[in-house]
Design a binder for these strands. Structure first.
Length: 779
DNA sequence: AGGTTCGAGTTTTTT
DNA sequence: ACTCGAACCT
């Protein structure tokens, strides 16, 4: 597969075999090289940089991915660096996959496979499995997502008898998470805690850590934290890794947090071949602990660093770029770049005022339909961005009603469904018996006679005697507080779990050798059996609240995804050349790890031929010819929670900048006069960011009088746009009920509508749709 | 034991 | 408006 954007074929003269001539440490400048031919001077400078620290400050659409992939290919095929010495870290799994593929196209198949391209979290998960024994980690540890974390926090709160009112789990969790990212553990947090709130959080933090340890579980932050710990406590491991990964590249460096900074630095510290790419203006994860100073202070950390600025934009029109540039100039905490482009001027960016969120969604849908029907723009080339997920709903409804294909970038949504979470919890329990959060989730799901009372008794016993809760399944007689019927139910369930565990190849004691027929079982088969034997499948089949058996279908989908994963995983190992057939237990471990680390954008398929809906955060790194940003209102963008803090406001501005710069040709920024929140309609104010955009790049569209709710659509179909236009030639003096007197500047029919640009005396210049604007001709 | 109803909290963004 | 948990009912 060749990227259509790559205008040249991936040089057939390659590859240079691994066993080729002695590595050359320089390239010959005069000779044509397909890796360098079509690059600009700064791009080439970045690509041909070999040793020593390098910072690439890449503006939006400046060909950053191309530079990274070319640089890897250059290192491998021109300089002669063994591909397995190259480590490239990206922000999402999808980005990793794409980068891996695009790089692999430039080198030999064999070399491509030997490259390491992954995210920080997947790298860490892998290292922790590999070096589990060094840290005393159980190899089957669970990775807790936010929902699991909240349950653990709630458990901590109830163990400590702390009121969830004053200490909301979410808030406590984010305090803990921020601390972890700063490498502050529970003990250090306690030291720093001054006020009552922090002192209490310190207690919860300690308890939470204890619960996770007891459950053999790590949260997302722990993945990073434990690797930092691994490097600190085991210098030999670090040295081994430093020598293996001599060339370290980190993309989206502006979004790395302190822990990630420590990991990257530790890895690159020995050889100093550290290439960071990113753009401080696109740093949008500060709330998650990302430290923009990592990129701003790069040169201070590496005084001899080479810095390359990529300022030419290949993506957007002049107007879109100028609008973005003007906006971002309002930030103070940045490294200025002179963004420019050779692309055409393009249309003005349309700033659209609509009545409410339904009207807004319908306006976007109508406009997209017009572009599709009249200009032949494919659905897959259009996208809608919003600040918060809840805005997707109206948009979805409108697209569905209009019969337009769409996809939502919510890769994790599937795994958040209750039936899927249950199934996954079973799998986790099989792999990790100590995982109490997962166990409690499924112990009576579907119901099997284990009541809340029984569960309470189990927890009480487990806490009082400091024994793992799962041990009670094998020995329920210890629980004197419950009746014999409950004890039997527990024992039966314990037996069931043991059978699965054995089938999966996880013996209770390490000496158990897996039987032959068991080892031959597939991951798919195992998941299927588990769904059937656990009763999950029957529960879904008999679920009366789900007549379409959607849940059952989802379970089927999980089986398919297990099968798909199994196939990919085996293929991967096979291609790796390692002569090793993975056992069921290995496959299961890897499958669970994958499930835990999927991200929202991972599900976006650009070739699906559907309009794509996503949050501004998920949009980073993507581009679309047509983009509509909805809900561009104060309180939403910038978000109200960011209003107070100057830094947070700057982050909101960067978020807006990211959204704007995704657009290649057409951009719409819409806001609604009234928006319904919690079922209550509230008046809104257009985003203050509008005032920071250059007016000559904007076109204000007033859609307040449009009828895009479908009622008058049939009427407007009948009107003749051409004739209407003739009635209002440019120069005509008109009166608008709201805007007063104005003069028509230009007028043109567009499909069923006629648009008129009118300069009003007091209300400024607006573009109105003639059929809806109740205009009056003044003679 | 299991289902139902009622009330509270929810919505910022995510690996 | 919608989801989740706790109390309450069968």
């Amino acid at each position: 597969m060749i990227d259509p954007q790559t205008s040249h074929p991936p040089a057939p003269t390659e590859p240079t075999p691994l066993t080729g001539p002695t590595p050359r440490r320089s390239t010959r400048p005069g000779r044509a090289d397909p890796l360098l031919d079509d690059l600009t001077t700064p791009q080439r400078q970045a690509v041909t940089h070999v040793d020593g620290p390098l910072l690439v400050l890449a503006g939006p659409g400046s060909g950053k991915t191309r530079v990274i992939t070319r640089r890897v290919a250059h290192l491998v095929t021109r300089v002669g660096i063994p591909p397995w010495q190259v480590l490239a870290i990206t922000f999402t799994n999808k980005a990793a996959g794409e980068m891996h593929q695009r790089t692999a196209e430039l080198v030999s198949e064999r070399q491509g496979r030997a490259l390491s391209v992954c995210t920080f979290h997947s790298l860490c998960a892998r290292l922790l499995r590999q070096y589990a024994d060094r840290l005393g980690l159980p190899p089957g540890y669970s990775i807790y997502d936010t929902a699991d974390q909240k349950r653990a926090i709630k458990q901590a709160l109830s163990d400590l008898e702390i009121n969830t009112k004053n200490f909301p789990p979410g808030g406590v969790l984010s305090s803990i998470s921020n601390s972890k990212n700063e490498l502050i553990d529970a003990a250090a947090y306690q030291e720093l805690a001054g006020d009552f709130y922090s002192r209490t959080v310190a207690k919860i933090y300690a308890k939470y850590t204890q619960i996770l340890t007891r459950n053999h579980a790590l949260d997302f932050d722990d993945l990073l934290l434990k690797v930092v710990q691994l490097f600190r406590e085991h210098p030999d491991v670090l040295k081994q890794l430093q020598d293996r990964y001599q060339y370290v590249m980190i993309d989206e460096y502006q979004d790395t947090n302190h822990a990630q900074f420590m990991i990257a630095n530790a890895l690159a510290n020995r050889h100093k071949n550290f290439c960071a790419t990113g753009d401080p203006d696109q740093s949008i994860y500060g709330w998650r602990g990302a430290n923009i100073k990592n990129i701003l202070d790069f040169e201070a950390h590496y005084p001899n660093a080479t810095v390359v600025r990529l300022e030419q934009n290949y993506r957007s029109t002049k107007r879109i770029l100028a609008l973005a540039d003007n906006l971002i100039r309002n930030n103070s905490r940045r490294k200025h770049k002179d963004l420019w482009t050779d692309n055409p001027q393009g249309d003005r960016v349309q700033a659209v005022t609509t009545r409410d969120e339904r009207h807004e969604a319908n306006w976007v849908v109508d406009e997209f339909r017009r572009l599709h029907d009249q200009r032949g723009t494919a659905w897959g080339r259009m996208a809608v961005f919003y600040r918060i997920n809840s805005l997707s709903r109206v948009m979805e409804d409108a697209l569905r009603d209009a019969g337009i294909p769409y996809q939502i970038a919510r890769g994790t949504a599937f795994y958040e469904r209750a039936e899927i979470k249950n199934a996954v919890a079973y799998l986790r329990c099989v792999v990790n018996p100590a995982d109490e959060v997962s166990l409690l989730r499924i112990i009576n799901t579907p119901t099997r006679g284990i009541s809340d009372k029984t569960i309470k008794a189990m927890r009480a016993y487990s806490v009082a005697n400091n024994v793992p809760i799962d041990s009670l399944l094998g020995d329920p007689l210890k629980l004197t507080a419950i009746n014999s019927r409950a004890q039997t139910a527990l024992a039966k369930f314990g037996k069931r779990m043991d059978t699965w565990r054995h089938a999966a190849g996880f013996g209770e004691d390490e000496t158990v050798v897996v039987d032959e027929p068991v080892a031959a079982m597939s991951l798919r088969g195992f998941v299927e059996d588990l769904l059937r034997q656990s009763g999950l499948e029957d529960a879904c089949r008999n679920d009366k609240s789900d007549p379409d058996h959607e849940r059952l279908a989802n379970l089927g989908e999980l089986v398919s995804s297990a099968q798909q994963f199994e196939h990919d995983f085996e293929l991967e190992l096979e291609l790796d050349g390692t002569d090793h057939t993975p056992s069921l237990s290995e496959k299961l471990l890897a499958f669970l790890e994958r499930i835990s680390l999927v991200s929202d954008v991972d599900a976006v398929d650009p070739d699906q031929g559907a309009v794509t809906l996503m949050t501004l955060h998920a949009a980073k790194g993507l581009e679309y010819p047509v983009v509509a940003m909805i809900g561009v209102e104060d309180g939403l963008l910038p978000h109200e929670r960011a209003n107070a803090d100057k830094h947070e406001l700057e982050e909101e501005r960067r978020l807006c900048f990211v959204g704007v710069t995704r657009a290649m040709r057409k951009l719409y920024l819409t806001h609604a006069r009234y928006r319904t929140v919690f079922g209550q309609s509230n008046a809104t104010i257009p985003s203050r960011f509008f005032q920071e955009m250059p007016q000559d790049c904007l076109e204000e569209i007033d859609a307040l009088d449009d009828d895009t709710d479908g009622l008058a659509d049939s009427l407007s179909q009948r009107s003749l746009p051409g004739r209407e236009a003739a009635l209002y030639p440019p120069g005509t003096l008109v009166r608008h009920p709201q805007f007063g007197l104005g003069r028509v500047i230009e007028i043109h029919p567009t499909g069923s509508h006629t648009r008129a640009r009118i300069a009003f005396n007091t209300a400024g210049t607006k573009t109105l749709i003639l059929q809806y604007a109740r205009l009056e001709r003044i003679e």
